Simulated scan of single mutants.
Amino acid sequence: MKKVAVIWSSPNKNGLTASAKEQISKGIADEGAEVCEIHLNSKNINHCRACGNGWGTCNKNGSCVIGDDFADIYNTLKEADGIVWISAVYWSDMTECFKAFFDRLRRCDATFSHSLTEKRCMLIACAGGTGRGTLECLTQLERGLVHMGMRAYDRIPVVRFNKDYMLPALYDAGKTYADRLENGFDMYY
């Protein structure tokens, strides 16, 4: 059985981002994969301190000196066969706690351990306001994944305007993603 980490961030546990997370997670589970949901807003995640003259232990051994929930989440991502990244959109970017986690992850993984290289990912950005900014958010997220050698297999913007047809589509996307993790992707990079 394949394991998929669904890592998401929104302070609203009942909003659009949570609905997107529910739909894709249900599709993944219904296709037979194990889903591990990680709600970053419920975790203790501090910002990078840029210690050690800018590069501390993250550059030397792939770990972070900050004693919070980061290491446990990082280990979950290492053990996963695939990762779904979901963020609410603020100022055309990921949420602040998502960025705090992602910055530290990139420092540890891209500079030392490379444990996430070749992970196949799905990217989802959810905007409850005008919807502007979802594409920029997805671009920023993918740029970080590229630093770590991960592969984005889909980039999905969900906004108030399209939620009635995108939320059901996320269920189908989750099923397809889980199937491809099990049976292979036919996309070349």
Rank of each mutant, 00 (worst) to 15 (best):
T95M: 06
K2F: 04
K2M: 08
I28M: 03
M148N: 06
N46M: 06
N46A: 09
K3T: 15
F112P: 05
L170G: 09
R106F: 01
N44C: 02
Y74L: 10
Q140S: 12
N12L: 06
S25R: 05
W85I: 11
N59C: 10
A18K: 09
F161S: 12
M122K: 08
E142V: 05
M1C: 04
N59Y: 06
A5V: 10
F185R: 03
I7T: 10
A152P: 01
W8Q: 08
Y171F: 14
C58N: 03
R143A: 12
S25A: 15
E118K: 08
I24R: 08
R120I: 06
T117A: 10
Y74S: 08
C126L: 02
E118P: 00
Y188N: 12
A110Q: 06
C97D: 13
D164K: 07
K26Y: 06
T139P: 00
H147Y: 10
S19N: 07
I24A: 08
I7C: 09
N61K: 10
R106L: 13
M166C: 07
G128M: 03
V146N: 06
K21S: 09
D72Y: 11
R104Q: 05
I86A: 01
G128H: 05
D179M: 00
E136K: 06
H39M: 03
N75V: 00
M148F: 01
I28K: 09
C58L: 10
N53L: 06
I156C: 10
L138C: 03
F161P: 00
R160C: 14
K78Q: 15
A18V: 05
Y188D: 13
R151F: 11
A80G: 06
N59W: 01
V4Y: 10
A110K: 05
S115M: 09
S113R: 08
R132E: 13
N75K: 09
K21M: 13
A178R: 07
C48N: 10
E136H: 07
M166W: 10
Y90R: 05
G133N: 02
H147P: 00
A110I: 07
G129E: 03
K99M: 08
I38C: 05
E96H: 00
M94K: 05
R104D: 02
E37H: 01
G32M: 08
A71S: 12
I156Q: 11
L105E: 11
A125L: 12
T95E: 10
C58R: 09
P157L: 05
